[in-house]
Design a binder for these strands. Structure first.
Lengths: 111, 111
DNA sequence: CCAATAGTTAGCCCTTGCGCTAACTGTTGG
DNA sequence: CCAACAGTTAGCGCAAGGGCTAACTATTGG
């Protein structure tokens, strides 16, 4: 628990786009070249590359260029940042197993 | 596993900002009024309100107005969308306990 | 060797995001 | 009742995001 903030920003931002989430999902199956990936999305290669760069600089994927082919690989470990954040969040609210829920549900029904 | 996409977008986008994550964390402790929350961040009330609205429309928080005070409450349940997405992702890559890692680590060391 | 292939770079457009100020509405304590 | 308070609305400025085209580089199969 520290100043992950910048890294978390990058990871959440990266995941906040459906194309990029789809890429992550896709790479969960197997490493894939940029071209093969791009072919599955309705956009041009340069546009798609921006997503790849965003994912890479967030650390969610790594890429290696071999000859003229760039292969993308998922970096499973990076997703644990999200996991940790969720766990921390859960820890916080479990410290207070109060009736916070009811608190609002009550007010809500009053004018 | 379906077309949560739009909802996931909203949630991830909401979490992709440090101010909003801080609000979520803060609300993990207790429901809080907009004014009390805003006082902890270096921005004006109207600016802060936009974050509140973003969080609210993502479903991560709910708000109730009582008199002239609007109180924000965390909606714990909504975070499970993220949780589910993570779990699904994990499920995918666990189907393939291959040597994907090595795959790349190898290529990497070659010219 | 050279045409095709795979990716890259540069630059443009438009929309959205996030901050601000100013001025307004609705509630309330005294 | 009215001044102070809590939030809201409107509108503005600027930077960033996500898409595009055009033109370029670097590899490679034949």
């Amino acid at each position: 628990m520290a100043q992950y903030s910048a890294q978390l920003d990058d990871v959440f931002v990266a995941l906040a786009d459906p194309t990029r989430r789809a890429v992550v999902r896709r790479l969960g199956h197997a490493p894939t070249s940029v071209g093969d990936l791009a072919r599955e999305f309705p956009m041009t290669l340069p546009s798609f590359m921006k997503h790849v760069r965003t994912l890479e600089s967030s650390g969610l994927i790594r890429t290696v260029k071999h000859g003229r082919v760039r292969t993308c690989v998922l970096n499973r470990e990076r997703l644990s940042l999200v996991d940790d954040w969720l766990a921390d969040q859960r820890r916080i609210w479990e410290e207070r197993t109060d009736r916070l829920e009811e608190f609002v549900t009550d007010e809500r029904n009053e004018p």
